[in-house]
Design a protein around this nucleic acid. Structure first.
Lengths: 224, 224, 224, 224
DNA sequence: TATGAATGAGGCTTCATTCAT
DNA sequence: AATGAATGAAGCCTCATTCAT
């Protein structure tokens, strides 16, 4: 049935429009200030219709969260694949860039996730989210272990590396938004490059980092 | 009059109890789930009494915020003083330890501050807060500049250092709470030490960091 | 769609019921003692429903105010039209009767308006209200000026006439409610007629007023 | 006991200060916006002390009301006495001037009285107030009756005269404050004089009112 | 199927009055 | 006698979700 297909398609399309609208409004107004009614208005549908697609407002947020995490994972996966064939800094850079591409968005999702966890809504979906997030750990671990065996990285449990790196990126995201730093930071791009440079050299043993070159343009050999 | 003094003292004591209760509830239930009524109940006083001490819920939060920031500043100040006479890693460690002493609290205040700023409540007090926070910047800047002149640190604007360091600590705080990392991180203390070690060596030029020794126990000469 | 129309109609009807209920309660209990909850109960709807129709309690009051003022203006307008063709006392009588038809209501709206102005709520709507109110001034002014030119009225700025007349009616409204006068006034209708007679002869130069005839039944030539 | 006397005197003095403060604040901020705490602060005493003098906030208002009414009555009484010996317009003028001397005050008391009556507080004191108010009626009645017998005033129940006059003054007070008239009224003093002139000629039979002379400066023979 | 009117729990704040000190 | 901290009822408004049309 073409008609049925078409219907399903339109249904999906609208679902996406709801998600897009929600994200847009969330970014514009912040987590606490977006109402279901606003989303419906923005998509130009009735409020009730939203509940044909999602059982609750939380579910919309969860979907947004999953979608974001998926795109992050996607990008990281391909970066890891590249790293295995050569430049080991690629995943680190990819990850950093993915999250810093839109720090506002990144932070929004942090807050959303936190909120959902705190209020203990949708614990099942949160579990899935975490599974997804940890799915790359194995590949990364192998990478770090190899490097450690080669004596290029300080020997610590491999998760130290990505945990620390995550923390740094997380901090960079927060820094990006901090209003108390806003006045101080004149060269934001330079600072972000500096931070990334710190990140890709974590645990690095052999070479003194960034020996002279400007870190941004030719940022050392990386996590090697 | 002893009586008058006593009265004032009791008043202050109650005020502190309100603040303590608010903090406790905030830590337990998160920012959005604490009501004025709950706080009052917890202190076992009437709802209206709260408003004898604070003009609004926001003011309670601001007080909490300021108190936390003050203790941070205090500690940092004395650490900077020590650093000027010798061990330059002291402020970094002090700052890290201060914030990581109770990461839940630290993160709570991040959220609180963000909320207050976003909703544009109490902009005056926020300004004060930021003043307080920036009050150490000059001392830190001088420290970094001296190090750079001595060729011990990579030459970048001095605020790059404390910004990056702030970001790392901020990330560590978030990491501490992340439920998706919770299962992975077996040696939390070790990880935190590792992160701090990364922190105190940011920009370090002369020595390869952590050359062999376990970073926690004898963590190299630090930011120098 | 008949259905859509019907829905809209029902919506409007409910809105009117809310307004009616508000007015009724206001008249019964006074401005300060009517709560949104009471109104909702009286209409037998939920508290929140009220806010689907009006953004605030003040808006309900404003609507009531405007509706009243409109009916007053309406009546006055047609009376002025008549007056231009002949009996010049018509507007004065119409105005008096309109306001005295339900003095409680009239006074309620005075209080409401005052309150809204004092608290500086809805200043925009208040401006509209005043526009509406002043819209008849020009017509009245012309009337008075013509009379003055004909030597029938004492020469004063024309707004003296309607201001004074307004004051008299306003006073009559208050008199109507005054509990301290309540016991004294035996012939209320007679008194009101007497007051109106005073009103329509304000500034009158040519004829001694009410020369013998009972003022109510054949109330002299009036403002002419 | 001199001491006891002194004490009583100080007590009375403070009572008056409370009343003065209440009135001042009431005039400044309006009926709804004055709290007991404000009054106490203004007198620089404790809130509880106020309740040593008055059993409730309402009682303060009642006292203010009575005092105002008494001063009005006082003035009217002496004016009536003068009128009996000669100029009959004196009471009318006195009354008008008393109330218009501070229209804000006058209106405040109207509102206060209304509020107290509506909320049915202090009905006993209200009765007393009304007694006081009506106490002059007899004297006034006699005056009007004499005039009517002399054929100088239209024959109506005598209370018609003072009721109407009260209404006019009442309206003038409201007019004075009306914000919608505020823009229109350029010559307020002139208008008030005009209204008073209308007032003193109510029911006047023999002479056409204000025959030529400017009403303010030599305002006709009055109510006769 | 889509709608949006209706709901009502729950949050923050105010203030007259009480009462222990 | 004076105080002022404490009280708590009461008011307004928001918004996720339901359900009749």
């Amino acid at each position: 049935m073409d008609k049925a297909k078409e219907k399903v398609q339109r249904f999906r399309a609208r679902e996406q429009r709801i998600l897009d609208a929600a994200l847009e409004l969330l970014l514009e107004h912040g987590e606490e200030k977006v109402t279901v009614e606003q989303i419906a208005e923005h998509v130009d549908i009735g409020k009730g219709t939203i509940y044909k697609h999602f059982i609750s407002k939380t579910e919309i947020y969860m979907r947004l969260l999953m979608d974001y995490e998926k795109s992050l994972t996607e990008r990281l996966k391909s970066a890891v694949a590249i790293a295995e064939q050569g430049d080991i800094t690629v995943p680190a850079r990819a990850y950093f860039e993915s999250r810093m591409a839109n720090p506002g968005k990144d932070r929004l999702f942090q807050r959303l996730e936190e909120k959902i966890i705190t209020l203990n809504l949708a614990s099942e979906m949160i579990a899935k989210l975490h599974d997804l997030r940890n799915s790359n750990a194995a590949a990364l671990n192998r990478m770090f272990e190899k490097r450690m065996e080669q004596g290029l990285l300080k020997k610590v449990p491999p998760y130290f590396y990505y945990s620390t790196y995550w923390a740094l990126v997380q901090g960079a995201v927060e820094l990006y938004h901090s209003r108390s730093f806003a006045d101080v930071i004149e060269d934001r791009a330079g600072l972000m490059a500096f931070i990334m440079d710190v990140g890709v050299h974590i645990g690095n043993l052999s070479h003194p980092r960034g020996s002279g070159e400007p870190p941004v343009k030719t940022p050392g050999p990386g996590i090697d």
